[in-house]
């Protein structure tokens, strides 16, 4: 599935929820189900500091694609992180770099990307894109693209 197909799938899933409670219960559930980041990567180097909740992010590069794992100390942030990972992980650097994450707005979670939330989510997405950009230039330099 492409990044946009996954986003559309998420939007459809969220359209089934009747109210905010169901929506947040689902986010919390996704947070609880997020595959754990390997303990060795949950280091200060991999921490993305929000003012309030913290996010740890690790990236693996395999056969032209990037795989992300992450964790957060707040479960709602973790749920949001899990959604972003579902959308972006397993794709080529160029796709990640150019991805426009419209699902956040469409599922009514835009406020979580605002500056005041300081939950580390916005910085995490930036970090993922930077990693993709770095891998993309590396691919270009090696002539593999």
């Amino acid at each position: 599935m492409t990044i946009n197909e996954i986003q559309d799938e998420l939007i459809e899933e969220f359209s089934l929820f009747g109210d905010w409670m169901e929506k947040y219960e689902n986010i919390i559930q996704m947070g609880k189900e997020l595959p754990l980041i390997n303990a060795q990567y949950k280091t200060d180097d991999n921490i993305i500091k929000g003012c309030q909740s913290r996010v740890w992010l690790h990236a693996d590069y395999k056969e032209g694609r990037i795989f992300f794992t992450a964790d957060s100390d707040a479960v709602i942030t973790k749920g949001l992180v899990s959604m972003v990972i579902r959308v972006l992980s397993g794709h080529a650097p160029a796709e990640i770099m150019n991805a426009e994450l419209y699902f956040v707005d469409k599922v009514g979670l835009r406020e979580h990307l605002s500056m005041t939330r300081s939950n580390g989510l916005l910085s995490m997405i930036k970090q993922m894109k930077m990693y993709a950009m770095a891998m993309h230039s590396k691919q270009n330099a090696n002539g593999t693209v």
Partner: peptide
């Protein structure tokens, strides 16, 4: 066992403005 941020997000949904964080 619950992060203050999570509590703040749920309270906000209920229209209750509190401050969470340090």
């Amino acid at each position: 066992g619950i992060h203050a941020y999570d509590v703040g997000v749920i309270l906000d949904q209920l229209g209750i403005a509190v401050r969470t964080g340090h």
